[in-house]
Protein backbone atom coordinates (compact mmCIF):
# COMPACT_ATOMS: atom_id res chain seq x y z
CA UNK A 1 0.00 0.00 0.00
CA UNK A 2 2.95 2.29 0.35
CA UNK A 3 2.71 3.11 -3.36
CA UNK A 4 -0.37 5.18 -2.83
CA UNK A 5 -0.12 7.05 0.43
CA UNK A 6 -3.31 9.06 -0.09
CA UNK A 7 -5.52 6.05 0.08
CA UNK A 8 -7.08 4.56 3.15
CA UNK A 9 -8.43 1.09 2.69
CA UNK A 10 -11.52 -0.33 4.32
CA UNK A 11 -12.19 -4.01 3.96
CA UNK A 12 -15.66 -5.38 3.42
CA UNK A 13 -16.74 -8.98 2.92
CA UNK A 14 -18.22 -8.33 -0.47
CA UNK A 15 -18.88 -5.18 -2.51
CA UNK A 16 -22.54 -6.21 -2.37
CA UNK A 17 -22.48 -5.22 1.30
CA UNK A 18 -21.65 -1.62 0.53
CA UNK A 19 -24.64 0.59 0.98
CA UNK A 20 -24.95 3.90 -0.88
CA UNK A 21 -25.31 5.62 2.46
CA UNK A 22 -21.80 4.46 3.41
CA UNK A 23 -20.37 6.10 0.32
CA UNK A 24 -22.18 9.34 1.04
CA UNK A 25 -21.14 9.13 4.68
CA UNK A 26 -17.52 8.94 3.52
CA UNK A 27 -17.98 12.13 1.51
CA UNK A 28 -19.63 13.74 4.52
CA UNK A 29 -16.45 12.93 6.44
CA UNK A 30 -14.55 14.89 3.85
CA UNK A 31 -12.92 12.31 1.61
CA UNK A 32 -12.30 13.49 -1.94
CA UNK A 33 -13.00 10.23 -3.68
CA UNK A 34 -14.23 6.71 -3.11
CA UNK A 35 -12.68 3.82 -4.99
CA UNK A 36 -14.48 0.52 -4.71
CA UNK A 37 -12.67 -2.60 -5.78
CA UNK A 38 -14.36 -5.93 -6.07
CA UNK A 39 -14.20 -9.30 -7.73
CA UNK A 40 -14.39 -9.64 -11.46
CA UNK A 41 -17.81 -10.04 -12.97
CA UNK A 42 -19.08 -13.57 -12.61
CA UNK A 43 -16.47 -14.38 -9.98
CA UNK A 44 -18.44 -13.21 -7.00
CA UNK A 45 -18.18 -15.48 -4.01
CA UNK A 46 -21.77 -14.66 -3.13
CA UNK A 47 -22.94 -15.11 -6.74
CA UNK A 48 -24.65 -11.77 -7.35
CA UNK A 49 -22.87 -9.55 -4.85
CA UNK A 50 -20.96 -7.48 -7.35
CA UNK A 51 -23.97 -7.09 -9.61
CA UNK A 52 -25.92 -5.63 -6.72
CA UNK A 53 -22.94 -3.48 -5.94
CA UNK A 54 -22.85 -2.20 -9.50
CA UNK A 55 -26.53 -1.26 -9.28
CA UNK A 56 -26.08 0.59 -6.02
CA UNK A 57 -22.93 2.34 -7.13
CA UNK A 58 -24.56 3.37 -10.38
CA UNK A 59 -27.40 4.89 -8.40
CA UNK A 60 -25.01 6.69 -6.08
CA UNK A 61 -23.10 8.20 -8.93
CA UNK A 62 -26.34 9.39 -10.55
CA UNK A 63 -27.22 10.96 -7.25
CA UNK A 64 -23.84 12.67 -7.05
CA UNK A 65 -24.36 14.14 -10.49
CA UNK A 66 -27.72 15.48 -9.42
CA UNK A 67 -26.37 17.23 -6.34
CA UNK A 68 -23.53 18.63 -8.40
CA UNK A 69 -20.62 16.46 -7.34
CA UNK A 70 -18.32 15.14 -10.05
CA UNK A 71 -19.24 11.49 -10.44
CA UNK A 72 -15.61 10.61 -11.21
CA UNK A 73 -15.09 10.81 -7.46
CA UNK A 74 -16.69 7.40 -7.26
CA UNK A 75 -15.18 4.52 -9.16
CA UNK A 76 -15.97 0.83 -9.20
CA UNK A 77 -13.12 -1.36 -10.38
CA UNK A 78 -12.79 -5.10 -10.69
CA UNK A 79 -9.80 -7.30 -10.04
CA UNK A 80 -9.02 -10.69 -8.61
CA UNK A 81 -7.07 -11.19 -5.41
CA UNK A 82 -3.92 -12.18 -7.24
CA UNK A 83 -3.61 -8.96 -9.22
CA UNK A 84 -1.42 -6.76 -7.04
CA UNK A 85 -0.09 -4.79 -9.98
CA UNK A 86 -3.56 -4.03 -11.21
CA UNK A 87 -4.50 -2.77 -7.78
CA UNK A 88 -1.62 -0.31 -7.85
CA UNK A 89 -2.51 0.74 -11.36
CA UNK A 90 -6.17 1.37 -10.47
CA UNK A 91 -5.33 3.18 -7.27
CA UNK A 92 -2.77 5.41 -8.91
CA UNK A 93 -5.05 6.21 -11.80
CA UNK A 94 -7.80 7.09 -9.37
CA UNK A 95 -5.68 9.36 -7.19
CA UNK A 96 -4.39 11.09 -10.28
CA UNK A 97 -7.94 11.77 -11.44
CA UNK A 98 -8.97 13.05 -7.99
CA UNK A 99 -5.96 15.38 -7.97
CA UNK A 100 -7.14 16.79 -11.28
CA UNK A 101 -10.63 17.44 -9.96
CA UNK A 102 -9.32 18.89 -6.73
CA UNK A 103 -10.71 18.78 -3.21
CA UNK A 104 -14.33 17.84 -2.64
CA UNK A 105 -16.69 20.73 -3.22
CA UNK A 106 -14.54 22.49 -5.80
CA UNK A 107 -17.16 21.74 -8.44
CA UNK A 108 -19.87 23.38 -6.35
CA UNK A 109 -19.45 27.13 -6.29
CA UNK A 110 -21.20 27.42 -2.95
CA UNK A 111 -19.81 26.96 0.51
CA UNK A 112 -19.11 23.89 2.60
CA UNK A 113 -22.46 24.15 4.37
CA UNK A 114 -24.36 23.75 1.13
CA UNK A 115 -22.30 20.74 0.22
CA UNK A 116 -22.93 19.18 3.58
CA UNK A 117 -26.63 19.89 3.35
CA UNK A 118 -26.93 18.30 -0.05
CA UNK A 119 -24.97 15.26 0.99
CA UNK A 120 -27.18 14.85 4.01
CA UNK A 121 -30.31 15.06 1.87
CA UNK A 122 -28.81 12.54 -0.52
CA UNK A 123 -28.02 10.25 2.35
CA UNK A 124 -31.53 10.55 3.71
CA UNK A 125 -32.83 9.76 0.23
CA UNK A 126 -30.81 6.58 -0.22
CA UNK A 127 -31.76 5.45 3.24
CA UNK A 128 -35.44 5.71 2.37
CA UNK A 129 -37.35 2.55 1.78
CA UNK A 130 -38.40 3.69 -1.69
CA UNK A 131 -34.95 3.89 -3.15
CA UNK A 132 -33.73 0.72 -1.45
CA UNK A 133 -36.71 -1.13 -2.85
CA UNK A 134 -36.40 0.22 -6.39
CA UNK A 135 -32.69 -0.36 -6.62
CA UNK A 136 -33.15 -3.86 -5.26
CA UNK A 137 -35.60 -4.56 -8.08
CA UNK A 138 -33.35 -3.40 -10.87
CA UNK A 139 -32.01 -6.79 -11.91
CA UNK A 140 -35.42 -8.38 -11.58
CA UNK A 141 -36.96 -5.67 -13.76
CA UNK A 142 -34.44 -6.27 -16.49
CA UNK A 143 -34.42 -10.06 -16.45
CA UNK A 144 -37.87 -11.20 -15.37
CA UNK A 145 -39.93 -8.06 -15.56
CA UNK A 146 -42.02 -6.07 -13.13
CA UNK A 147 -45.37 -6.91 -11.55
CA UNK A 148 -46.99 -6.67 -14.95
CA UNK A 149 -44.34 -8.84 -16.56
CA UNK A 150 -42.90 -5.92 -18.51
CA UNK A 151 -39.14 -6.03 -18.94
CA UNK A 152 -37.10 -2.86 -18.74
CA UNK A 153 -34.21 -1.83 -20.91
CA UNK A 154 -31.09 -0.38 -19.33
CA UNK A 155 -31.99 2.95 -20.84
CA UNK A 156 -35.38 2.92 -19.22
CA UNK A 157 -33.98 2.01 -15.82
CA UNK A 158 -31.68 4.99 -16.16
CA UNK A 159 -34.54 7.35 -16.98
CA UNK A 160 -36.57 5.99 -14.15
CA UNK A 161 -33.81 6.29 -11.59
CA UNK A 162 -32.95 9.82 -12.62
CA UNK A 163 -36.57 10.88 -12.23
CA UNK A 164 -37.07 9.23 -8.86
CA UNK A 165 -33.72 10.42 -7.53
CA UNK A 166 -34.35 14.02 -8.46
CA UNK A 167 -37.76 13.94 -6.82
CA UNK A 168 -36.46 12.24 -3.73
CA UNK A 169 -33.54 14.63 -3.29
CA UNK A 170 -35.83 17.64 -3.55
CA UNK A 171 -38.29 16.17 -1.11
CA UNK A 172 -35.58 15.30 1.40
CA UNK A 173 -34.06 18.76 1.13
CA UNK A 174 -37.43 20.32 1.83
CA UNK A 175 -38.00 18.00 4.76
CA UNK A 176 -34.57 18.73 6.25
CA UNK A 177 -35.28 22.46 6.11
CA UNK A 178 -38.74 22.20 7.58
CA UNK A 179 -37.36 20.13 10.41
CA UNK A 180 -35.55 23.20 11.74
CA UNK A 181 -38.46 25.62 11.79
CA UNK A 182 -41.61 26.56 9.89
CA UNK A 183 -40.80 28.13 6.53
CA UNK A 184 -42.58 29.69 3.58
CA UNK A 185 -42.24 28.47 0.02
CA UNK A 186 -39.96 31.35 -0.83
CA UNK A 187 -37.76 30.68 2.20
CA UNK A 188 -37.32 27.08 1.12
CA UNK A 189 -36.69 28.02 -2.47
CA UNK A 190 -33.93 30.42 -1.48
CA UNK A 191 -32.15 27.74 0.49
CA UNK A 192 -32.27 25.02 -2.14
CA UNK A 193 -31.69 25.04 -5.84
CA UNK A 194 -35.34 24.85 -6.88
CA UNK A 195 -37.74 27.53 -8.17
CA UNK A 196 -40.63 28.41 -5.81
CA UNK A 197 -43.38 26.89 -7.95
CA UNK A 198 -41.65 23.53 -7.84
CA UNK A 199 -41.20 23.78 -4.09
CA UNK A 200 -44.88 24.62 -3.78
CA UNK A 201 -45.84 21.61 -5.82
CA UNK A 202 -43.73 19.31 -3.67
CA UNK A 203 -45.15 20.84 -0.52
CA UNK A 204 -48.69 20.45 -1.86
CA UNK A 205 -47.91 16.81 -2.58
CA UNK A 206 -46.44 16.33 0.89
CA UNK A 207 -49.51 17.90 2.47
CA UNK A 208 -51.68 15.52 0.52
CA UNK A 209 -49.68 12.66 1.96
CA UNK A 210 -49.94 14.11 5.44
CA UNK A 211 -46.18 14.65 5.83
CA UNK A 212 -46.27 18.44 5.93
CA UNK A 213 -48.86 20.70 7.54
CA UNK A 214 -49.76 24.35 7.48
CA UNK A 215 -48.36 26.17 10.50
CA UNK A 216 -49.87 29.64 10.06
CA UNK A 217 -49.12 32.63 7.93
CA UNK A 218 -46.53 35.34 8.00
CA UNK A 219 -48.03 38.33 6.21
CA UNK A 220 -48.94 37.02 2.78
CA UNK A 221 -46.85 33.87 3.11
CA UNK A 222 -48.21 30.65 4.53
CA UNK A 223 -45.68 28.77 6.67
CA UNK A 224 -45.26 25.03 6.62
CA UNK A 225 -43.76 22.56 9.05
CA UNK A 226 -43.33 18.84 9.35
CA UNK A 227 -46.26 16.90 10.69
CA UNK A 228 -45.69 15.77 14.26
Amino acid sequence: MQYVPDIRTIRVMCTGRIDPSMILEAFLHGVDGVLILGCREGECHYVTGNIEAANKIDMTSRLMKIIGIDSDRLYFGHLSSAEGARFVELAEGFTKRIREIGPLGREIKEDKEVLKFRLEAAKAAVESEKLRWVIGKKTEFMDQGNKYGERFTRHEIGRLLDGILMDEISVKEIQLLLQERPLSVRDVSERIDLPPHRVLRYIAGLRRKGVVRLEGTDGVSPLYSLQG
Binding site: E129, L131, W133, I164, D167, R201, A204, G205, K209
Partner: peptide, 19 residues
Protein backbone atom coordinates in the same frame (compact mmCIF):
# COMPACT_ATOMS: atom_id res chain seq x y z
CA UNK B 1 -49.27 6.67 -1.14
CA UNK B 2 -46.51 7.30 1.30
CA UNK B 3 -44.14 4.79 -0.24
CA UNK B 4 -44.91 5.07 -3.94
CA UNK B 5 -41.74 6.35 -5.61
CA UNK B 6 -43.49 7.90 -8.59
CA UNK B 7 -44.59 11.51 -8.68
CA UNK B 8 -47.16 12.31 -11.33
CA UNK B 9 -48.63 15.43 -12.75
CA UNK B 10 -51.97 15.60 -11.00
CA UNK B 11 -54.62 15.63 -13.71
CA UNK B 12 -57.42 16.04 -11.21
CA UNK B 13 -55.86 19.14 -9.72
CA UNK B 14 -54.91 20.55 -13.10
CA UNK B 15 -51.29 19.74 -12.47
CA UNK B 16 -50.98 22.07 -9.51
CA UNK B 17 -49.69 19.36 -7.23
CA UNK B 18 -48.27 15.88 -7.39
CA UNK B 19 -49.99 12.62 -6.97
Amino acid sequence: IEVCPINLWDDEDQGLSFR
